[in-house]
Design a protein around this nucleic acid. Structure first.
Ligand SMILES: [Zn+2]
Ligand SMILES: [Zn+2]
Ligand SMILES: [Zn+2]
Ligand SMILES: [Zn+2]
Lengths: 168, 168
DNA sequence: CTTGACCCTGTAGTGACTACAGGGTGTGCA
DNA sequence: TGCACACCCTGTAGTCACTACAGGGTCAAG
């Protein structure tokens, strides 16, 4: 099986397959006389394993570890359980952080309902005033007074910052 | 105010401030005779505006747009409202995707409770069997039969894939 | 013999930073 | 004056998991 066929069977792009090989996740296949990669059913399984783990949000480093555990049959599986637990914890934290973010955005959105001039937009006004030290609906939850410095935002952006290139 | 002082007052790292300037988000400040950046209160506000928006999960591109709207007082604020709406939609989608992910991981986690040899770990077994085409608890929700091709995972990983370097 | 589909390597780009390397500046103290 | 030390500068390269070429080679059909 050539790389294009493997790509078709797994739904993984050709360049990604080559990338996984370069990263040492996928074992290097035999080569034809002309240098073409020739894959076996075993490597199809390997790639599906990687894709399955990726679909569960694991990093390539995690998958590398998992593959090592898979190879070492005697290994105490506690490490595997822990890896999954950490993954769950990570995802859970992200969910919580994003839910807070959604609430903050909804509170901000509520500041403007009509179509006005930008100068009169409640959203923009809130953002500008907050940048001058005023409390804001988004970072001043219900009842909180927030006199003094409301700076620093807990670096929430850093914690939630993600690339969104993969969204349309 | 030198860059270090601005960093202290905003909680933003010096290198990040220089990065924002390079990216055209922060206006270039005056320079001292020796080339040191000298910031005014206005730029402090500018930076706080950026940080506030970042903490709401906005991309630098979004913030650039928002800053442009802020400068153009006559501009119809519908564009601002829309920007926030899109941000809310994006975050909401991410929350939903991550919640599904969490459920999938919890279902998988449930496959192993003890400390056994890796060969007998229910988690690892599930992952390996799934890579050979078998249905799995994580991608075969309650009641779904999943005979035939269960491949492709909706490319969920792609949609949720994020860097986790910023988590310890 | 040409077309077109496929394959190869290697490099550079994405986003939002972060981390140096290798230098210059400014202040305080002995 | 000499020196330490904190701060500043530019420029480049690294992070993660891909993605997108550029510039070439291979192979079967028509
Ligand atoms: Zn508005
Ligand atoms: Zn706010
Ligand atoms: Zn186990
Ligand atoms: Zn699964």
């Amino acid at each position: 099986m050539l790389i294009g066929e493997l790509a078709r069977q797994t739904g993984c792009e050709v360049e990604t397959i080559r990338y996984y090989e370069r990263e040492g996740l996928l074992s290097a296949p035999q080569r034809s006389a002309s240098g073409y990669r020739r894959y076996t059913a075993e490597q199809l399984g390997e790639l599906n394993f990687i894709l399955h783990c990726r679909s569960l949000g694991m990093s390539l480093a995690d998958i590398r570890n998992l593959a090592a555990f898979k190879a070492d049959h005697q290994h105490d599986c506690e490490d595997i359980n822990q890896l999954i637990d950490q993954q769950i914890a990570k995802v859970h934290q992200q969910v919580e952080a994003l839910r807070l973010l959604e609430q903050q955005l909804l509170a901000l959105r509520d500041k403007c309902h009509d179509s006005r001039a930008a100068a009169d937009c409640g959203i923009l006004q809130t953002l500008v005033e907050a940048s001058e030290g005023a409390p804001c609906v988004c970072h001043t939850p219900f009842g909180q007074d927030n006199h003094g410095h409301s700076q620093d935002y807990d670096h929430a952006a850093k914690k939630n910052g993600r690339s969104n290139k993969d969204r349309p």
